[in-house]
Simulated scan of single mutants.
Amino acid sequence: MSAVQNPPEKMMFQLTLRRRGISDQAVLRTMEEVPRELFVEPGDREDAYRDSALGIACGQTISQPFVVAYMTEQLKLQRNHRVLEIGTGSGYQAAVLSRLSREVLTVERYRTLADAARARLETQGYDNIEVMLGDGFDLVGVTGTFDRIIVTAAMEQIPETLTDLLESDGGILIAPIGPQHGAQTLVRIVRTASGLERKDLVDVRFVPALPGIAREL
């Protein structure tokens, strides 16, 4: 039996999330249900449920489970929400979001990652996720507003192109903000009647968010 099929491995996965403060039962249940081993590189499947980030194609990463759970919990998702994700990666975060919301639009600048994530999500039956090849700083073709926005790569500051897409009635945006090569702070922005309210959450480290669509990959 492989490590990813070992019940104690999954039990420790859940225990680690609870010990680190994740308390939302819907988030915990979703983290247990989404098969993380199918979103990591084949050679990393035995480590899929360790609480650590893992490398994927194009020099990107799949975030550690705690960070995925924490960001998801901070979004306070509801079933009727429309969600925008910047940085598809392997598609794991989008899969988690899709179980807790109405629809997810996830944008990826690397064609290799976008195509692989789209195929992976379709194969697993995630039919409320749209994967789009695009630029997270210049979202051409994206229409309407979103109840929730999540950025899974580090931005030095949040562009107005993103906050402008945030639903006016209590919309929430979560993003890692800070220097590209160093520690960042996970920031939550809430749109209220009086404007945008910012709260710094925890220190994190993400790969940088880059403008444009990648030419080679």
Rank of each mutant, 00 (worst) to 15 (best):
L121P: 14
V140M: 09
V40G: 03
Q60T: 05
R148F: 06
G195D: 02
F206W: 01
R36T: 01
M31F: 11
G87I: 00
A175K: 06
V68N: 03
V204H: 01
L77A: 07
A154D: 08
G136P: 13
V204C: 11
I129D: 05
H181V: 06
G136H: 03
P7S: 12
V68I: 10
A116Q: 15
D164L: 12
F66T: 00
E37K: 02
L105W: 07
M155H: 04
Q5P: 03
Q184H: 03
Y70T: 01
R19D: 09
N80R: 12
A153N: 05
V4Y: 15
L77D: 03
H81S: 05
R29D: 10
E32H: 05
D127E: 10
T16V: 15
E197M: 12
L28Q: 07
L38Y: 11
I189V: 15
P42D: 12
G21E: 14
D127Y: 04
L133N: 07
I150N: 00
K10V: 04
T72C: 07
E32R: 12
T88A: 13
A53Y: 00
A3G: 02
M1R: 11
R118W: 02
R215H: 13
Q14D: 05
R191I: 07
R205L: 05
E160A: 14
R102F: 11
I174F: 11
A26G: 11
G171T: 09
L201W: 10
L196T: 09
Q78W: 01
G141V: 03
R18V: 13
V151M: 04
D200F: 06
I172R: 13
E103H: 14
V142F: 11
C58V: 11
V68A: 00
E216L: 08
G21F: 11
L75I: 04
L75H: 05
I174Q: 07
D24P: 10
E216H: 14
I22R: 05
K10I: 14
S101Y: 11
I150H: 02
L105K: 08
L97D: 03
L165A: 10
E122F: 02
A53Q: 06
T30K: 07
R18F: 03
N6V: 06
R118L: 00
L28D: 08
D51K: 00
M155A: 15
V107F: 03
V67P: 00
S101C: 15
T185V: 14
E9D: 08
M12C: 08
A3H: 06
R20L: 12
E156W: 01
Q14G: 08
G87N: 04
R50Q: 14
D44H: 14
A94V: 01
Q64F: 00
E197G: 02
E9W: 06
G141L: 04
R29H: 12
V207W: 03
Q157P: 00
D44I: 04
L217I: 13
T61R: 00
V131P: 05
